[in-house]
């Protein structure tokens, strides 16, 4: 499976980013470049999991407000800044689910559905597609999170680990198990 290049961070990019972070720590006004760089990514991550577009923009703003007010706490320990933002986004999303009664939503593309059916060695028929969508709706939150990150957003195991604050290997194992559970539900 190909990894989405949007989420990939080279070492050089991370180092360059550290300069921007240091500047933002000194002066909040200089957080601007980081905001412009990551706004779309974070919005897509949020909107991917929400039905309401306006609420998604609100949550995204809230993510950056939290990030800027806590930027003095950010220390580079091998985890890129984007992963730190995703963690905040994850936390803000759950808060929105609780406080604003936002509906947990999963956005999938047809292509991803068919890829998954192929992974299960089944026919890519319309009925199977319907069945898989129904199965996805039954998945538990933790499993769904992994399936989304890995199979719908095509993130690397390393990045999944960084966002979920688990090791790369654990992310790999848990993603596999989540897929196995979906397969089990699908085949039964």
């Amino acid at each position: 499976m190909n990894v989405n290049p949007i989420y990939h961070q080279s070492k050089q990019t991370i180092v360059d980013e550290l300069t921007l972070i240091t500047n933002a720590k000194r002066d909040p006004e200089r957080f601007g470049p980081l905001y412009e760089k990551y706004h779309a990514q974070i919005f897509r991550y949020v909107y991917q999991r929400m039905d309401d577009q306006e609420l998604a923009f609100d949550v995204t703003s809230q993510v950056f407000i939290k990030a800027l007010s806590n930027i003095h706490k950010y220390e580079y320990r091998g985890v890129p800044f984007s992963s730190w933002l995703y963690r905040i986004a994850k936390s803000e999303l759950y808060q929105a689910y609780r406080d604003r009664k936002a509906r947990k939503t999963v956005n999938v593309e047809n292509m991803h559905i068919f890829e998954m059916i192929e992974e299960f060695d089944e026919d890519s028929s319309v009925s199977n597609k319907k069945k898989l969508i129904e199965c996805l709706a039954l998945m538990k939150e933790k499993d769904m999170q992994l399936l989304e990150l890995r199979y719908f957003e095509k993130r690397s195991y390393r990045e999944i680990g960084e966002i979920l604050e688990i090791s790369e290997n654990t992310a790999k194992v848990r993603s596999f198990r989540a897929l196995e559970r979906l397969k089990k539900i699908f085949l039964n």
Binding site: E36, A40, F43, Q53, V106, L136
Partner: peptide
Amino acid sequence: KNHKILVDRKPLSETYIQSRQDF
């Protein structure tokens, strides 16, 4: 059902998302 599944939702354009930026 734990989730609402949306298939092939119309994606928002990059320009539109950028227009909503408000630092």
